[in-house]
Design a protein around this nucleic acid. Sequence first.
DNA 1: TCGTTTGATAGAAGTATTCTATCGAAAGGT
DNA 2: ACCTTTCGATAGAATACTTCTATCAAACGA
Lengths: 296, 296
Amino acid sequence: MIDKLEMFIALAREEHFGRAAAAQGVTQPTLSAAIKQLEDQLGVMLVWRGSRYRGLTPEGQRALDWARRIVGDTRSLRQEMRVAREGLAGDLRLAVIPTALTVVSDLTAEFSETHPNVRFTVQSKTSAEILGMLENLEIDAGLTYLDNEPLGRVTTVPIYSERYVLVARAGHPLLNAPVAWGDLGDVPLCLLTPDMQNRRIINQHLAEAAVEVAPQIESTSIVVLVSHVLRSNWATILPVRAAEIFLKGDDLGSVPIVNPDARHAVGLVAPHREPFTPVLAALMDRARAVSEMAVG
Amino acid sequence: MIDKLEMFIALAREEHFGRAAAAQGVTQPTLSAAIKQLEDQLGVMLVWRGSRYRGLTPEGQRALDWARRIVGDTRSLRQEMRVAREGLAGDLRLAVIPTALTVVSDLTAEFSETHPNVRFTVQSKTSAEILGMLENLEIDAGLTYLDNEPLGRVTTVPIYSERYVLVARAGHPLLNAPVAWGDLGDVPLCLLTPDMQNRRIINQHLAEAAVEVAPQIESTSIVVLVSHVLRSNWATILPVRAAEIFLKGDDLGSVPIVNPDARHAVGLVAPHREPFTPVLAALMDRARAVSEMAVG
DNA sequence: TCGTTTGATAGAAGTATTCTATCGAAAGGT
DNA sequence: ACCTTTCGATAGAATACTTCTATCAAACGA
């Protein structure tokens, strides 16, 4: 039964029998049979059938909610028993927004010393993807914005507040003093793509300052933005924590962007499943510790 | 997996391999094998082994919590799909404290008219048993006291407030005016047994009034109490709602017991499992409706 | 000490699951 | 309109798993 629920979740996620089967490590006929058996056992259609996948029925949607919970709790059971057996161990899957990638090591470095048998897998994803992956049980926790976007049934631990700086090549004329959002109208900019929440936040502040920008370079990668800035007179807008790793040398400079001194909360997001598994509880403890260090 | 968790829950409840197997409709070797497989899959011992059942290990206790949740959610999934298929239907298992038995029909009578395909199974149990059965998934909901006793992870819907009357044969000298708890010291009484919460509540009020009683008749059955009262000069203390069904004729009389005019909340208790299954949600709606009628 | 109770074990029978191979229907491109 | 590709369902064989009956050994109680 639980295997079938796993396959059902995979099907809802992949929206494709073949891919879902591959993701589950079974062949397509096996997955087809599993879905059909699930439908027989529950006595309702879960998936609209045609010659291809056409989405879930309303009952399928409700069943998916239960399936996620049942499968998630089952994994929690397995994980907790594993911890009882061999202490904190296992693989902790994180997904992180690009602008928070440098913060991950604050969480993991000390954690790994205390719990050497816990492995981390860190993916860079958009905030929307992170929430979807949390729902689908593809990750154990995420590092993302805590406000602005609708969060589901999750527990959050604030870690720090994002503040923004303008980053440009050393000698750029705007680097002499703090710059206001309203001053950025004519500056050639490289920015993240508009599907990313950081960009939407920046857009919002620029719009509030009645500034319109048309960045010549858009990317999902901060590295791409910074390397462009390094080569030309382009500038970019980055959160302090994301920018500082590139400011070690003398090639780049930064100034705070003020008026307003915008802040956006970033933190750990985990599925709300009481009681928390030991590994997740430990990670949340660590996040709270990092949060206090940031305040102090 | 889920079958094995069911068997594990049954074993923890019955504390006996043979009885648990019988309860699950399998043979004892099957249940033994299931538990062993569960232990193998989870990699931990769940049950202390000897030549007989010796209780759960600490890991077994934790696993039991998860198992109850997983199995409960699985049943909810099945039930909700059944409702989607054929409307509100199925078997709703209730356990009720004896003093609230007459209230059950307030819940069920109208409910059955609206939902004729829902069957009820009503058991008379003590409040402690009700909570245990809720945990073990043996019942879907209970009707019991909402205060005084520790409730677990449950949702409650208050229905009415218990008030107490003295019940005696017509002509009994105490029936002329309301009687105080403190006046009951020398009255020959029949009461429920002390393992029942109603009796503990009554004891508490008597103790607060500095009265000691040694009932000559104790029973777990209100019918036994009333039939004794009918035959002799004994009196008994009952909640109004439990007494009124016996007061239809002229043989018995009742007076309120005051000073204080004691009240104790009674209501529906159901496992807290969001979202609620449709049948349970409907029953809770009905309980809220009954509650408002009682107030008005 | 002897009978009874309790849970574990062995082996056979039955049931379920998964695979490979193949098919038919629908989409998409030319 | 036709051909190709993609997608999911189906059939049948091999395999794995589950459950049963029968039996055993250990421990408890009289």
